[in-house]
Design a protein around this nucleic acid. Sequence first.
DNA 1: GAATGACTCGTACAGCGTACGATTCAATGT
DNA 2: ACATTGAATCGTACGCTGTACGAGTCATTC
Lengths: 232, 232
Amino acid sequence: MAAKRSGAESKQSRRTVASPRQGPEPRGEAPLSLERIVASAVELLDAEGLDGLKMRRLADRLGAGAMSLYWHVGNKEAVFDLALDAVLEYRRSPEIVAPQDWRGEIIHMLEDWRAGMLRHPWSASLLPRRALGPNILSRLELLGKTLSKAGVADADLNVAIWSLWNYVIGATITRANFELSDDDRAAAQQRLTDLSQHYPTIERSRLLLDNDWDGAFRKGLDFLLDGLAPRE
Amino acid sequence: MAAKRSGAESKQSRRTVASPRQGPEPRGEAPLSLERIVASAVELLDAEGLDGLKMRRLADRLGAGAMSLYWHVGNKEAVFDLALDAVLEYRRSPEIVAPQDWRGEIIHMLEDWRAGMLRHPWSASLLPRRALGPNILSRLELLGKTLSKAGVADADLNVAIWSLWNYVIGATITRANFELSDDDRAAAQQRLTDLSQHYPTIERSRLLLDNDWDGAFRKGLDFLLDGLAPRE
DNA sequence: GAATGACTCGTACAGCGTACGATTCAATGT
DNA sequence: ACATTGAATCGTACGCTGTACGAGTCATTC
């Protein structure tokens, strides 16, 4: 589903093959490059969050003037796109997985996906608003192929893919944004207890105190997979 | 799970009981009030999206000075919180639903939830970052109660609730942000076709051309509910 | 009629993304 | 040897943002 608005092109549509460049940096500063910019943006996003990424601060980190970035990136939106794509790469598990273990393969890929995004929590909020880059498409392709092998009917394939997508996206965004201190969580549950005549069920189940996010993700995924392709 | 940062308090912690106020508006302008501000903010968000909400523009719409808003709302974050909460109310279907039709009840509530957010597409992106307001908690309570009645074990209840939450949030955010023109969609699929040696499965299933979002939401929900509480 | 408090708003400021143009330097053509 | 070009950098400036601050306007209460 491509880009909604994927950020303008930079002026250099093809990078020069790059002469080694020995000259003009007076200190030990490396020259500016797309790669350095993206790497630095990811660091900055990890450290300061979505709102913390400012063009001036990014340039400062790189020892460059703010406007120098615009030679390489077009605009700030493009920085987000590039940082997101840089973070979503998937390398299939190196050890040979039993080829008929479709369930294990899916679970591994989706857990890796979620873990990767949680390592960079800004990425989860960013993902749905952006283009489907090659790394995402690869994951969707692997998902579709594996589900198909597992016996999901062609007519149900898209629904199955989007269901798993929805689940992963929803779980990860929620997890990334509900990172609360124990105090916050206790206070929230206390508030619930105070209002327990309004919310008796979720108060009793201690919904807001349940801290096992990883386990809950896995269990819910199992339920969904059970629905999509019942175990024999 | 309460507020992460729910926006500062306004100066008026309790509203005055309000004398009818006949005096000072020279034109037919109603006096400023929290209600008017929130209603106007929702309109503005619907019309211009998340980035379109500016304090000055909001004030203009209300025929007020920009700084007048700050008597009522604390800061801009609070406007977002209030607008979100205003949009997420749930009124259970008025006609009496067959009390043992737990599946119908859940589907109705979740489809209504999704539909409500899609009527205000900014709300979906906003929801996960915000506090759980009373309207959300009510929906979670109804969910938990109904699932419990349907026979979901207490030990699985939280997982079931969060799974459905994840699914709804993920589906709605995706839907709200992938609102593309037909041209965009065709271009995206074309790009896929060009690369079909890389993505044969999702190209063949026409993943990006499938336009039946409502149907896909419903079918995926059915799969998930099958997994959570197998039909007898 | 003085005091209080609810409410409004003009001005000002720091910080943002980025348009524009000047500048520097290496590579190239002659 | 010199001029031209184009890649890359950056200083300055502009319009726009959220909001701090303080002065203003009323209605209500003593």
